[in-house]
Design a binder for these strands. Structure first.
Length: 477
RNA sequence: GGCUUGGUGGCAGAGUGGUUAUGCAGAGGACUGCAAAUCCUUGUAUGCCGGUUCGAUUCCGACCCAAGCCUCCA
């Protein structure tokens, strides 16, 4: 059994073998902080967080670098629009985004790189490209990558320059020798933020920063390069051109791209005004629910967020926590340790074979439904033959890779109930009074009245269930 | 126009050269005073046309359709 990863470069699943056995160097393109983080950013960050965690679970020593692009046209534009210094604008967005990513349950990457803190590396990198004949300085002070010096261009996105497959930009910048050349360094317009460079005052282009930060923090070659699928062309293609022109070596061994997020079947975009901000998601749902919803899909596929996307996930998460809470108190008098150990081994195998298959969290979660059904079935027995508490704890351990189900189950259940009551401005005493009233009516065989009470509670979103030990209530979520 | 990815049951969404996961919804049943909740059982699908094969949803080819990228984008 070994880990297989779908490599976008080769367009097939490949057995994972890092450059250095036991160690993984991974880079994922992070966010340009020109605005607030949205679901798409959340999805991508959760995907690479889970990948990092599974690699660690598999015993790899992982170095995960993730960048913030903290200077670009949109940042300058958006900062100017509200009269804030662009650097301060970026800084504030980074602080809030970090806090939101923490709240989402993501581990912090090993290195959180920032373009503006690597300006020297970027300048060095550009110098090397110029020295090697791969870049040129235009009269405007801009520096461009000379695309025809890199014959491998297009190998990731499979475009062919000879066939002129790229739609040519209409607003070609004046200093370019070839309209497909892309900017490495942009000269500063009057009043714009700038850094000193051998080519005058300016700032780095978008693509070069990732090449430079990779070089600085991970070296010439890395194992996994990730990002959203929309970055394949031109961003990642340009990164390859830059880095491999300097090193002459294969840049990344595996290219991993996660799918995009749609809202009710439509592409998320500013013009449609249908974006979902991470901040709003976190205000409405807990991190377990959000992660569960995002990870039910295969990472490489697009996600379509419909109205029941998160509510359904919340229901599943609540059910799983409820089961775990019940499992903690299960009767252990008839437990068979050998059978329990076998079950745990079986669960582990299902977990690993799903995750080994290109991090198939969708398959994993489908398997997990079976595990919880199993525990529920055992719990219905007066004396379970499996140690469901131990099985539950094992599942929790495995779910640590997704960073779901890591809260105290009893607390999660009661917190959910309390949040519901608070939301409805209702007290538990009220519910218990109603239950007592119903019991009284039932005793007098006044079923019309007992049913009325039940329907009333149901209408408020509460279900009640008669058990041998009495009537219990639960929230319908 | 080019490139890429994909087309699976009512919807969502996996795997698989031969009994087609899982979730939501549906049907029947158990339980119940009746329900709810829960559990059990169950129906329904692999875009179209060829090819390879004893056998294809799975492999190959053509076609149709959809989405993404080719401008900043996770």
């Amino acid at each position: 059994m070994s880990l297989r990863i779908y490599n976008v470069m080769s367009r097939q699943k490949e057995e994972f073998a890092p450059l250095t056995p036991g160690r993984v160097k991974m880079y994922a393109c992070g966010i340009t902080v020109s605005g607030d983080a949205h679901v798409g950013h959340a999805y991508q960050s959760v995907v690479f967080d889970v990948i990092t965690r599974y690699l660690a679970y598999r015993g790899y020593d992982v170095t995960y670098v993730r960048n913030y692009t903290d200077v670009d046209d949109n940042i300058i534009k958006n900062a100017n629009a509200i009269g804030v210094d662009p650097m301060r604008f970026a800084e504030e967005h980074i602080v809030t985004t970090d806090a939101q990513m923490d709240a989402l349950g993501n581990n912090r990457p090993t290195v959180m790189a920032r373009a503006t803190r690597c300006i020297d590396d970027i300048i060095e990198f550009i110098k090397k490209l110029i020295d090697g004949g791969h870049a040129y300085v235009a009269d405007t002070g801009d520096v461009y990558f000379k695309l025809d010096t890199f014959p491998g261009y297009g190998k990731l996105s499979h475009i062919n320059l000879d066939k002129n497959e790229i739609a040519v930009r209409k607003d070609t910048e004046p200093g370019k020798q070839n309209e497909l050349d892309f900017a490495l360094w942009k000269s500063a317009k009057p009043g714009e933020i700038y850094w000193e460079s051998p080519w005058g005052r300016g700032r780095p282009g978008w693509h070069i920063e990732c090449s430079a930060m990779n070089m600085r923090f991970l070296g010439e070659q890395i194992d996994i390069h990730g990002g959203g699928r929309d970055l394949v062309f031109p961003h990642h293609e340009n990164e390859i051109a830059q880095t491999e022109s300097v090193t002459g070596k294969q840049f990344a061994k595996y290219w991993v791209h996660c799918g995009l997020v749609k809202i009710n079947g439509q592409k998320m975009s500013k013009s449609l005004g249908n974006g979902i901000l991470l901040r709003d998601m976190l205000a409405q749902y807990d991190a377990d629910t959000i992660r569960f919803a995002l990870l039910r899909n295969t990472y490489s596929n697009d996600i379509d967020i419909t109205d029941d996307f998160f509510p359904v996930a919340h229901r599943h998460v609540y059910r799983m926590y409820s089961t775990l809470a019940a499992a903690k108190d299960a009767d252990k008098s008839k437990v068979d340790d050998t059978k329990t150990a076998q079950k745990i081994a079986e669960i582990t195998l299902e977990f690993e074979s799903a995750m080994d298959d290109n991090f198939n969290t969708s398959h994993l979660i489908a398997n997990a439904f079976g595990w919880f059904d199993f525990i529920d079935a055992e719990l219905r027995k007066p004396q379970p033959t499996y140690d469901v508490k131990a099985i539950g704890e094992h599942i929790v351990k495995l779910f640590g890779v997704l960073n779901i189900l890591q809260q105290d189950a009893t607390k999660y259940v009661s917190d959910t109930k309390n949040a519901f009551l608070r939301d409805k401005n209702m007290s538990e005493d009220f519910i218990n009074e109603r239950i007592a009233e119903r019991a009284h009516a039932k005793q007098e065989r006044d079923f019309a009245r007992s049913d009325a009470v039940r329907d009333e509670l149901l209408a408020m979103g509460l279900s009640i269930r008669d058990t041998p030990t009495g009537t219990v209530w639960d929230v319908k979520i």
